[in-house]
């Protein structure tokens, strides 16, 4: 790094957020993401979509990945680029994603029959974001990458 001239208009800027695995803290991630998105120039309805997607992703990480262990962290990376905002949410859990969950579209009639009325999170994220990808975080936990494009 030293000695080199940094690029005049660097391609991306990253904000990193580490949250305790406690429900309620998804709010911090939502407000941070919306603050960034608003200032990047996203329209209000896109910002609302982003907030919902971030909320679902962080809640999943808290509940499923880290199993409510407040000492475990949820790491949220917000990467601002010229035409898009990338949000990575990683947990430190040992429980991998249920692959079935990440691709299935819940059917309201079926869900009404089940005791667990949840399971909408990942489907919602897919509906609201432009790109969604599931992977394993460098820490070994689960990671979800969500991309939202800035339409000018």
């Amino acid at each position: 790094m030293s000695g080199e001239t940094p690029p005049r208009d660097p391609v991306e800027r990253v904000i990193e957020l580490r949250l305790p695995s406690k429900l309620g803290y998804e709010r911090v991630a939502m407000d941070t993401a919306s603050s960034l998105a608003r200032r990047m120039g996203f329209q209000p309805d896109r910002v609302e979509s982003l907030k919902t997607a971030v909320s679902e992703a962080v809640t999943n990480a808290i509940e499923h990945g880290n199993e409510h262990d407040a000492a475990m962290k949820v790491v949220v990376l917000l990467t601002a680029r010229a035409g898009e905002l990338i949000v990575d949410v990683a947990d430190q859990g040992r429980k991998p994603f249920d692959h079935n969950q990440t691709i299935r579209r819940p059917v309201i009639e079926e869900v009404l029959e089940q005791d667990d009325k949840g399971g909408w999170g990942i489907w919602l994220i897919r509906e609201l974001m432009d790109e969604v990808e599931f992977s394993t975080a460098p820490s070994g936990g689960n990671q979800i990458r969500m991309v939202i494009h800035l339409e000018q």
């Binding site: 904000i15 941070t32 919306s34 603050s35």
Partner: peptide
């Protein structure tokens, strides 16, 4: 409860507002 928050940001004016909102 270990109520804590960590964040890091680039040294570019304007980004302090994102930290502020977090």
């Amino acid at each position: 409860s270990p109520a804590s928050l960590e964040l890091s940001l680039p040294s570019e004016l304007g980004y302090e507002v994102i930290a502020r909102d977090a």
